[in-house]
Design a protein around this nucleic acid. Structure first.
Lengths: 121, 121
DNA sequence: TTCGTAATCAACCGAATCGTTTATCAATGA
DNA sequence: TCATTGATAAACGATTCGGTTGATTACGAA
């Protein structure tokens, strides 16, 4: 997943309204009106939120007469967990190595500077 | 994890500089200068990014003389994957149910309105 | 055609972000 | 004490975000 897609996807989840929409959509597709129902904001605002989710690749839309049902893309969510887990697992395995190196109950010191180059992948 | 913490955590990851910092920190703690090295922006800007990560609960900081080593909190990352997976798994299990109900190769239709109340959890 | 409904577009506003520059604080060592 | 190094604070500009109102498009029904 390229940087810009990650930018948009994490940004899309950084809003409680859009997260509630994701939660709703996990239970099944929904129209704009249905997604708007739990909120007090205008439907135009809801429409914008859906566009943010769509441009982030988290949802797709089809057409059913004048309705535009929104569909959650579970694979896109998996990409995000994969990105996070990649680094979480590196960090956790490093903690385990430290633990067994130092023995239990030791306060974790911070490491010496690592000189290796950064890859932005 | 409460709404505001999720807001801040996802927002923190919605920036390529901060994600690169998370990637770097997964390999070990680092100071502001070390984190700034791969970037062309000022150290003040880097310092602000670190504060964003800190307020999001993704990193913690200690003190070593005049240095302020930054430490990645793997548990915080796990909270995020847990939130995403919660809804991803609901959606995926729903797809599986549809598949076995309709037989293979069928295009997925979108569902009828679900009337149940929304929980923001 | 005309009407009603679903949804989007366009323009605008206030608040938050991301970066800069300048100045300041904190700790170390000569 | 004074200079240096690591890091933060404060103020500013440009841009983006989340929301509104008002107008417009797309479709189906009468």
């Amino acid at each position: 997943m390229e940087q810009d897609a990650l930018d948009k996807a994490f940004m899309a989840l950084a809003d409680p309204v859009r997260r509630a929409m994701v939660a709703r959509l996990s239970r099944g597709d929904a129209t704009v009106n249905e997604l708007a129902e739990p909120f007090t904001i205008t439907k135009q605002a809801v429409s914008k939120h859906i566009q943010v989710l769509e441009h982030a690749g988290l949802v797709t839309r089809s057409r059913d007469a004048q309705r535009r049902p929104v569909h959650l893309d579970a694979a896109a969510l998996e990409h995000l967990t994969a990105w996070i887990d990649q680094y979480r697992l590196i960090a956790e395995s490093r903690y385990r190595q430290l633990d067994q190196l130092l023995g239990a109950g030791t306060e974790e010191p911070h490491e010496k500077p690592a000189k290796k180059k950064e890859e932005l992948k």
